[in-house]
Design a protein around this nucleic acid. Structure first.
Lengths: 171, 171
DNA sequence: CCCGGTAAGTTCATTGATTGAACCGATGGA
DNA sequence: TCCATCGGTTCAATCAATGAACTTACCGGG
């Protein structure tokens, strides 16, 4: 979105939008929750221009939402993983997902989310109805729903389900 | 943000972002929940360029999130109010607000939200801990928190608290 | 040694969006 | 008559996004 700042500094929603409100940023975070970590995988999966991806990853790292980690010294290679602060954004993403599934997806949900501990589907608020507890992102398992889309690119095919959130993509 | 579309059509989050992901849109919705309805009030409160406001309001109306209603025939004057579909976006806004208050606001929350029926503060998920129930936007009362900002413009001053969400601004 | 491939970027010209100031038309009030 | 309000539109200048090409470092094979 935006030149990114909102003068309307007083509101916490405006402050959040300054961190995650730019175009592509929320989709980058969604992919990070699903296990995408590498620059090339984000670029291929999202179709985002590489220059924009570079900028967004840098902003997220600067704000402590992602961490850049070296996973290979020779050759030098970095990956981007959600920090604890980043993981705590899950309720925002989940709320968007649920609204979209409820109001924009004819034929049922594309994806469903379950409590890893018991396998029960989460409710609209991210609670496990069986355990009567809020389920944080690391305890969520994602699976295909009845309206699951075709996996039409290499990254999508590596994004196998059922899959626990934050589990890195296999090669 | 953006040219507004995301080719990655398969994901419900991407679809939601196509509706509410452009710059300013979420802040327009926030104001609509707080009771702002008129073009001039949105423009003054947000500091958004009028041409952009026109475009965003039109997009939201076209997608059924806001409704345009005539509130005066002579002179002809329209206002913008949330539809039921728009009101159902509250959990998305609430999740953003809670994350911002928890992680970006030193000195406690700027705003607090209570269950209108019992006066109890809502938890991080929008539940009333006393009634053990999810609280929809029309049953939420907003109030100043310990870090409440100064009211530095005319619209802010008309945004009195405590205030039930969706209650229109008085003149 | 040379060639091809992968990963993670950078550069740059073109296109598109945002900004802010100015303008407009209808009405209402002093 | 003059000024103000409301709800916009218009337009030039600025800023951001796009996509293709290029770069650097390394690895593996022949």
């Amino acid at each position: 979105m935006l030149p990114k700042d909102y003068a309307d500094q007083n509101c916490s929603i405006a402050r959040v939008l300054e961190l995650i409100g730019e175009r592509w940023t929320v989709l980058i975070l969604r992919d990070a929750f699903f296990g995408v970590r590498r620059f090339a995988d984000f670029a291929e999966h999202l179709g985002v221009p590489r220059a924009v991806l570079t900028d967004r990853l840098r902003t997220l790292v600067d704000n402590g939402i992602l961490a850049r980690r070296r996973y290979s010294e020779q050759p030098p290679r970095d990956e981007y993983v959600l920090t604890d602060l980043g993981v705590s954004l899950w309720p925002v993403l989940y709320a968007m997902s649920q609204w979209g599934e409820a109001h924009l997806s004819a034929g049922g949900p594309r994806r469903v989310f379950r409590h890893a501990a018991c396998g029960t589907g989460l409710d609209a608020h991210g609670f496990c109805p069986r355990c009567r507890t809020a389920v944080p992102a690391p305890d969520v398992v994602m699976d295909d729903g009845p309206a699951a889309p075709a996996r039409d690119n290499r990254v999508s095919r590596r994004l196998t389900v059922p899959r626990r959130l934050l589990t890195p993509l296999a090669d």
